[in-house]
Amino acid sequence: MKKPINQSVNDLLNNFELSDEQLASFAQLEKDCLQSKPQTKQVNINHSKMWLSLVASFLVMGLFMGQFLGAGANKKLTSDEQLHAIAMEVSYNHLKFKPLEVAHSNLSQVTGYFNRLDFNPLASSQVAALSTSLIGGRYCSIQGNIAAQLRMEDNQGRISTLFESRYQAQDFSMLPNIEQGQEPKVLYVDGQRVALWVEKGLVMALVSEANQ
């Protein structure tokens, strides 16, 4: 039903509420912060720090202006740069190891959790080769697009993460489509192996140990 946008935005956001557990964690945070001692020693060095910050700010501003006035100010990212940006992002998310929102070894149980996605996360043909078992998943994003991350573990306890997102041509057109006989693009970032490809209309990124 169509409603004024103010009402739709309110209705949408009112679906979200902190759980009792989350509220308790904020109460604990407040308690911890209030109990911790104030950092009095820092006050004495703040003056010199302030001058250093000021000098550093001018230097950074100078560098920024130099770059901005240069030719590359409005440069669009090349395909390689876009690939690298995606690889950096998924590698960061993999290494950050945020808590799972759903923990289950059954794919349909895990994918059933992702009811806010506009696509269905799928098993990938590329993951089978790793002999891993699913341990759970959570929401994340790739280049600003909502995504699912599925965490897996092999029999040696090594963790790999499969990221899946809806294919958006403006963000992911540079990725190989394995259904057209193309091979996944493999990059190494932060000591991780990152494979990127498009499969069944989804963007997939698999991050695993470089020697896995």
């Binding site: 039903m1 004024p4 946008i5 103010n6 739709s8 935005v9 994003s141 600003g144 958006q168």
Partner: peptide, 20 residues
């Protein structure tokens, strides 16, 4: 924006594609 009418489902669908 007040004159915009939008279905909540429609908004939810496009929510993540909006910029921060």
């Amino acid at each position: 924006l007040e004159d915009i009418m939008i279905d909540q489902q429609e908004l939810q669908k496009h929510w993540s594609s909006l910029q921060d």
